[in-house]
């Protein structure tokens, strides 16, 4: 019974990932796409958490932490690139 409930939750997370994917493809501006990609990463994290309850395993906790960090760093890099045109600024002193 609990397993069926978790499967339904995973299905709804899949639907929200598909909605974000629609926004990635269609999104009129570039920050829209980056925001939808960040939302996909966050929803993937939630899906992995539900999957680790479903399978009763500890093995995916590292992956939760890793996807959180990588999604954060990637979104920060995209935001800097959209704002300034470069990711890493050089010659800050001049």
């Amino acid at each position: 019974m609990f397993q069926i409930f978790l499967s339904g939750c995973l299905f709804f997370l899949l639907l929200s990932i598909l909605a974000a994917l629609y926004r990635v493809v269609k999104g009129p501006s570039m920050p829209d796409r980056v925001m939808a990609l960040d939302n996909i990463g966050v929803n993937l994290l939630a899906g992995i958490a539900i999957l680790s309850i479903f399978l009763r395993t500890y093995a995916f906790f590292d992956i939760i932490l890793l996807i959180g960090i990588l999604s954060f760093v990637g979104t920060i890099a995209f935001a800097r690139f959209l704002e300034r045109g470069v990711v890493i600024e050089r010659n800050r002193i001049h």
């Binding site: 966050v42 906790f61 932490l65 959180g68 979104t75 935001a79 704002e83």
Partner: peptide, 26 residues
């Protein structure tokens, strides 16, 4: 699981920063 607790803390810490930076860039 200290790893899961760190994941919760990290998501809680970074999500407002990401939203603010993306809005500012937009």
């Amino acid at each position: 699981s200290i790893r899961l607790l760190l994941g919760i803390f990290f998501v809680f810490l970074t999500s407002p920063v990401v939203a603010h930076l993306l809005n500012r860039a937009a």
